[in-house]
Simulated assay, not measured.
Amino acid sequence: MLKAADRVVAFTGAGLSTEAGIPDFRSPGGRWSRMKPISFEAFLAGDEARRESWRRRFDMDDEIRLARPTRGHLAIASWVRAGKCPAVITQNIDNLHQASGIPADAVVEVHGNTTYATCLDCARRYEIAALREPFLASGKAPCCDDCGGFIKTATISFGQPMPETVMRRATELAKTCDLFVVVGSSLVVYPAADLPRLAHRQGARVVIVNREETPGDAYAELLLRGEIGDLLADFVL
């Protein structure tokens, strides 16, 4: 099916990166079972929420910094190199698709990226490493050197508007592919989880590679259950 397709889109979620040592958020024992997510509204409204958001980010710093692309990441990167896959849509924020060799402009990050931060007012970019020591020393949430605005990791929090340009591109990819491959996504976080259904409605074949059942299984043409690295090892181009 992969070799026969002309235009493949990979749509990836947290299950792809667990082999790299990055736990997902929703499974039992995951971060959301241990701590309530901090909404965008709360981040804007309170200094304590901003401090806690940054404390959590630096608490997971080693996981993100030391993680390396998995067998699944490398398999998907081979589809891009082979010219089969024009871009990867990902819900992941760990930058591992780029680390696998996929050009940054071919990675559509619908939930952003936690490996850098931006000022919410002037959009100045900040590197995480440069923010770590000042935060650990002072305990104060960082503010922009240029305009004084709040600095936040370049991720999309609950209640934060989805990036319109990114979502338009993801939608266009879903509409124009002939094979849509879901890898490691629970397909429960919207609006991104609607993309495979959209691809299906436009006539694309949908394949779901995941350890557990998803809401998209009903319209998938092929379901592959098991460890993602093991399954995708057979689909390297």
Rank of each mutant, 00 (worst) to 15 (best):
G13N: 03
D59Q: 11
S27V: 07
R34E: 08
R71E: 15
G13F: 03
N95A: 15
G21I: 03
R65P: 01
F25C: 02
Q91H: 10
T18G: 08
S27D: 04
F58I: 04
F25T: 10
G15S: 09
L44P: 00
E52S: 13
G21K: 07
T90R: 05
P86C: 08
V88Q: 05
W79Q: 03
P103T: 12
D59Y: 09
R68A: 15
G30E: 06
V80I: 15
W54V: 07
Q91W: 01
A82E: 09
Q91N: 10
A77L: 07
F40D: 04
M60D: 10
E19C: 06
I89A: 03
R26H: 11
P37G: 07
S78K: 08
R50F: 11
D62N: 02
D94P: 05
A82P: 02
G21P: 03
A87M: 05
I93M: 15
A87S: 13
E41R: 12
R57P: 00
L96I: 06
G30Y: 11
W79R: 02
D24F: 00
R81L: 04
R34H: 12
P69W: 04
S78T: 13
F58C: 08
T70V: 03
A42W: 00
R55S: 12
F43C: 07
R26Q: 12
R65W: 15
G46N: 14
R57G: 14
E63H: 12
R55P: 05
A14P: 07
G29C: 02
A20Q: 09
R26V: 06
G21F: 12
G101L: 10
C85Q: 00
R81K: 15
T12W: 15
G30S: 10
I89G: 08
V88H: 01
M35T: 15
L74Q: 10
I89Q: 06
I38Q: 01
M60L: 14
I64H: 12
I64D: 07
T70Y: 06
W32V: 12
I64S: 09
V80G: 01
W32H: 05
R26T: 08
E41P: 02
F40S: 07
F11S: 07
R56I: 11
I64Q: 07
A14F: 09
V80M: 01
P37H: 04
D24I: 00
F25H: 09
S100N: 11
A45E: 14
R26A: 08
T18W: 06
Q91K: 05
E41L: 00
G101S: 12
F43G: 01
I22S: 04
I93G: 00
P23F: 08
D94C: 10
D47F: 00
R31M: 09
R51T: 11
F11L: 07
D62G: 00
G83S: 02
T12I: 09
R56Y: 09
R71L: 14
T90V: 10
E19Q: 03
F11G: 05
A77Y: 06
E19K: 04
H97Q: 14
A75F: 03
L74Y: 00
S17L: 09
M60W: 04
N92D: 13
P37A: 03
R71G: 15
A49I: 01
A77C: 09
N95W: 06
M60I: 13
L96D: 02
T12V: 02
G29A: 11
G101D: 10
R56H: 11
L44W: 10
G83P: 05
R26M: 06
D62R: 14
I102T: 05
K36T: 06
